[in-house]
């Protein structure tokens, strides 16, 4: 059969050329960008820092603070926390090896109190010119992790006359992870603590790593 006799392709077949080219170039970009991103997720962390979620290392020192404490709506006696309908003025302290190693500020009228763990009021404009050390930035206890030891978090309802106990919980170091740790509790005659969120951050981290871990 000569070229003259060969059947002609319909015009729409030719129209597929630009369509296929669009698909091919899109696919090509997708392929190379996916390959490029395969390296690693999340912010880079330098060698000294531990990754988020890893167990605390024995003998290593950590910042420890409660970023959130929630209390049950009634106190240990089953009554309102304050006269009237005022909520509890929550404060906590961290005890390690029988010693108070950190005391927080009071959060007024809160059943759910939170603390940023920051020791300074950070503004982005400050970050441009000032230099902070992690000790200046973090408001928390410094504790050394030992598997068979624990820290105690004691919570009180601050009053003008006398503080009322809200309860106390003991947390083993082996149950803690770097970053955020959440613990939930039932109400008992000795404790009205419903929830404690603790943050553990290695003290030998750079400031940038600490900020990444605090996120």
């Amino acid at each position: 059969m000569s070229d003259f006799d060969a059947p002609k392709k319909p015009a729409w077949v030719g129209a597929l050329v630009p369509v296929l080219l669009v698909l091919a170039s899109a696919g090509l970009y997708w392929f190379f960008s996916a390959k490029g991103e395969g390296g690693g997720d999340g912010p880079p962390v330098d060698g000294s820092a531990q990754s988020l979620g890893t167990k605390l290392v024995n003998g290593k020192t950590y910042y420890l603070f409660a970023s959130l404490i929630e209390l049950y709506p009634k106190n240990l006696d089953g009554e309102n926390w304050d006269l009237g309908d005022g909520g509890p003025d929550i404060r906590y302290r961290v005890l390690w090896q029988g010693n108070e190693v950190f005391k927080s500020k009071v959060k007024d009228d809160s059943l759910i109190a939170d603390w940023s763990g920051l020791g300074v009021e950070l503004e982005w404009s400050d970050l441009l010119g000032k230099k902070f050390s992690p000790d200046e930035i973090i408001k928390g206890a410094r504790v050394r992790s030992t598997d068979d030891q624990h820290v105690a978090v004691e919570v009180v309802d601050g009053d003008v006359a006398d503080d009322d106990e809200a309860g106390s919980v003991e947390i083993l170091f082996k149950d803690l992870r770097v970053g955020t740790n959440e613990f939930k509790y039932e109400k008992t005659p000795d404790s009205a603590i419903r929830r404690v969120v603790l943050k553990a951050l290695p003290v030998d981290s750079s400031l940038q790593d600490l900020v990444n871990l605090m996120k």
Binding site: V17, P18, L23, S25, A26, Y29
Partner: peptide, 16 residues
Amino acid sequence: GVLACSILLGFGLVAP
């Protein structure tokens, strides 16, 4: 021209 535009369009649809 159509070929070049097709390639550009393909990249343009999936690129940031």
